[in-house]
């Protein structure tokens, strides 16, 4: 837990902190998907991962499954929305390479909240009465509320070994900064980890900047294992305030996800053929030009207008000031 500089390369972070067989919280939602980390896990051929998450888009998890890194997944929603299907996941379920356990979004989020709280399970209103609960007794049960006797669904706690997330900024101690949602479920998926969090960030900042506005810290340094400076680390998903969703590339990637014979061709070119994420982005600009990246620029102009100050009071001003009393409370 020491306060140390945790910066390292993508390659170092994945090789040092992700083991075969780990349970991994897969960060983000429909945007902020940890794509650079996904690619690096594939490059390092990690095996038998157990993925936990609520929802995940742009086919990042599809790539991870297609590359045979995953053994099991517990989640509510996964696909590449831009081709409207989770092709590699679908094939891997059919061939029984992976086991998929379904819950609702808040079922999955509640499982992570229970992990965040350090408690064994938590009640949730959804899932009851449907095929979700019928086919996932591993994560969900219906019990009698011990106070009223009424039936209620409970979901077991999930605690990942390690979390992988992408963020807008992080300081080099590992304080992770986000704005515009707290990463949908990232605050629970990260803090509930047993070992800690690997973060890729668009920008690395000085800790004194973090400390000037600590309300924005999503993950405090003591949960962070590695900080990787990684511009475009969520591409082709969006990163709030930095770039929008790359619809064209998501569709392009999706056309490869569709076929088990084509997917390795995509991986050879865009993952195995790139030594790191900077090389992937270089390849992108070779193929789509700088205007490809320029098209992703966000519409800015939404800076906070709230003026505030984290000022505190110094109790030393009371030094030497006698207690106040009057005739009613005398002796």
């Amino acid at each position: 837990m020491a306060v140390t500089d945790k910066r390292m390369t993508l390659k170092e972070a994945v090789s040092k902190f992700i083991n075969n067989g780990d349970t991994v919280y897969y960060g983000g939602f429909q945007i902020m998907v940890p794509m650079a980390l996904t690619h690096e896990i594939i490059r390092q051929k990690k095996k038998d991962l157990n993925i936990i998450n609520a929802s995940t888009d742009v086919g990042g998890l599809d790539l991870l499954v297609g590359a045979k890194c995953v053994k099991e997944m517990h989640l509510a929603w996964a696909m590449n929305w831009y081709v409207k299907a989770p092709y590699a996941i679908r094939r891997a379920v059919q061939s029984k390479e992976i086991k998929r356990y379904d819950l609702s979004n808040f079922g999955a989020t509640s499982a992570m909240i229970a992990g965040f709280l350090g408690i064994p399970f938590i009640p949730v209103r959804g899932n009851i009465g449907t095929d979700i609960i019928k086919h996932n007794p591993t994560d969900l049960k219906v019990i009698a509320d011990p106070f009223t006797g009424e039936q209620i669904t409970v979901v077991r706690a999930w605690r990942a070994d390690v979390a992988i997330i992408h963020a807008q900024k992080a300081d080099y101690f590992g304080n992770v900064i986000t704005w515009g949602t707290r990463g949908v479920t990232d605050e629970f998926g990260t803090m509930g980890t047993k070992r800690g969090v690997i973060v890729t960030a668009e920008e690395i900042i000085e800790p004194e900047i973090t400390r000037s506005d600590p309300d924005r810290t999503l993950v405090p340094y003591f949960k962070t294992l590695a900080v990787v400076h990684c511009p475009y680390g969520a591409h082709p998903s969006a990163c709030r305030g930095y770039y929008g969703l790359d619809i064209r590339f998501s569709q392009y990637q999706g056309k490869y996800e569709r076929s088990k014979d084509l997917l390795p061709v995509f991986m050879d070119e865009w993952i195995y053929g790139c030594e790191d994420h900077a090389a992937y982005i270089r390849k992108y600009t070779e193929k789509f030009g700088q205007e490809g990246l320029d098209r992703l620029k966000p519409i800015l102009g939404f800076k906070p207008k709230l003026d505030l100050d984290y000022g505190y009071h110094d109790p030393a001003v009371w030094k030497g000031v006698p207690q106040y009393t009057d005739e009613h409370i005398k002796a």
């Binding site: 929603w77 696909m79 299907a85 059919q94 998929r100 609702s104 449907t130 095929d131």
Partner: peptide, 21 residues
């Protein structure tokens, strides 16, 4: 779904189940 070799997965519930409950 009991016979996964013939099951064609879509995305899954997402929040739809929670919302409709």
């Amino acid at each position: 779904i009991e016979m996964p070799e013939g099951f064609t997965y879509f995305a899954g519930s997402g929040g739809a189940n929670d919302m409709a409950t």
